[in-house]
Each structure stands twice: as structure tokens, then as C-alpha cells.
Amino acid sequence: MLEARLEQANLLKKVVDAIKDLVQDCNFDCNDSGIALQAMDNSHVALVSMMLKSESFSPFRCDRNIALGINLTSLTKVLRCAANEDILTLKAEDAPDVVNLVFESAESDRLSEYDIKLMDIDQEHLGIPETEYAATISMPSAEFQKICRDLMALSESVSIECTKEGVKFACSGDIGSGSVTLRSHTNVEKPQLNVEIDLSEPVALTFSLKYLVNFCKASGLSEQVRLCLSNEVPLLVEYALSNNSYLRFYLAPKIGD
């Protein structure tokens, strides 16, 4: 059986909120290392990969592998019933029909309990190769969100060009063009504002802004976001969570003219 207790319901609320517009029905794959999710969007352009390690829960118990097929709209409805600071416990039997969610207030004696019916989801699981990326950029997640939103006002696509000079986000559309360039920057007092660029060779790729803006819904999960790029492979956008847990998005590039 599965029993996984989260100190704050807020973490799961934010994760589900960040991915629910991209993917609808997902298997939450539970095993002794934690709870994982991998799902593509309907058009097969983007891939979501979430890992909540067992260390992110206390306690965590999962005796055998269980796939919980959950509709994210249903999960969102139930998670709305939890206060952000509630303790959240997920429970399921070994061959479950439902997943049980218990919300407990740490400050009062309230205990809420909900069951969500599970679905049989036949999802293609993709193997994501280990990649040595040519460029890795760590930057404030709010800054990345603003750049994507700003450029989307002008164009559907953004080119991300990384050289030793810095990283340039550029777009052009019907009304004109725009760009934002960032250089490496260290703020000793506020390290969450750092921009770090690690480059082994120059990279230039073009991506759909609609998807990037969607990924940025995860900005509330982490002060920093990591962008990993290599020519002609999908972009990795990673929001690191505590205990080596993460929420990753992969986006296929636009190719050719």
C-alpha cells in the first residue's frame, strides 16, 4: 500500500496547478523511491516530468509499484478543499480503485477526507537520454516568466541564443521586434537573484512562447529556474524542489525556416 504524508498541501497544489493546463490525465507512478509523473501534452510538443522523492514525505511508505491514474481537473477540485498549510496524506491500496486524500489542520482538530476515482491510463513512457547540455542557465524564475510574457506580446516564438557574452532572448512579430539579454550576475546578499551561465559551446534555438509561458506557471515552486540547451535537442526547463525533488518541462524546438 501507499501512504505518503506531506508537511504542506501547498507543494502538491502548486505542482498540479503548474501542469494541469498542459496535461490532463496522468499516471502518478509510486514506488519506494517516491512519486513520479511523466506526461506529454496533447500535441506531443512538450513533456512534463515530475519527481517527488520519498524524502520529501514524512513518513513515506510504498510496498510495491502502484500507478495511480488521475484526472488533474478532479485532483484540482479536491486539492482546493485543502488549506495551503494543511498536512496532506495520500493513501492507496495495492490494486486501488481510488486514491484517498486526507487534509489535517496543524492548528485545529479538523480532518477532511476525500477519495478520487482512479482511471486506467495507457500512457506512452518516453526514455529521456542523459544529456550533456552545451549551455546551462540558472536565473530567477520570476525574471524568466516576465521575459516570456513580455515577448509573447510581440511574437509566437522566441530565439534563445547563448554565447560567452550572455544569453539573449529575442523575438520578432508584426508590430516589431524585441530582445532581452542577460549576463552572469552574482548578488551576494540575494543569491536568488543570481544569473549563472555555464557554456561549453554557443547555442541558438527557437521555441514556441505559448509553451514557455505555460511552464512558467511553476514559478511559485522555486525562486530559480534552470534552462538547459543544446543545439537541435529539446530545451529542459527545471524547477528544483527540496530533497532533490523536481518539476521538469521539455520543449521540442522549432526547426528550419
Binding site: V45, G127, S157, A252
Partner: peptide, 14 residues
């Protein structure tokens, strides 16, 4: 602007 590629062109099913 380029043509949007598909994520399954890069990551293999299995």
C-alpha cells in the same frame, strides 16, 4: 519562425 518539431522525435518510447 521554423516548424514545430515533435518531442517524440527526440525521446524514444519504451
Amino acid at each position: 519562425e521554423g516548424t514545430q518539431s515533435n518531442i517524440t522525435n527526440f525521446f524514444q518510447g519504451g
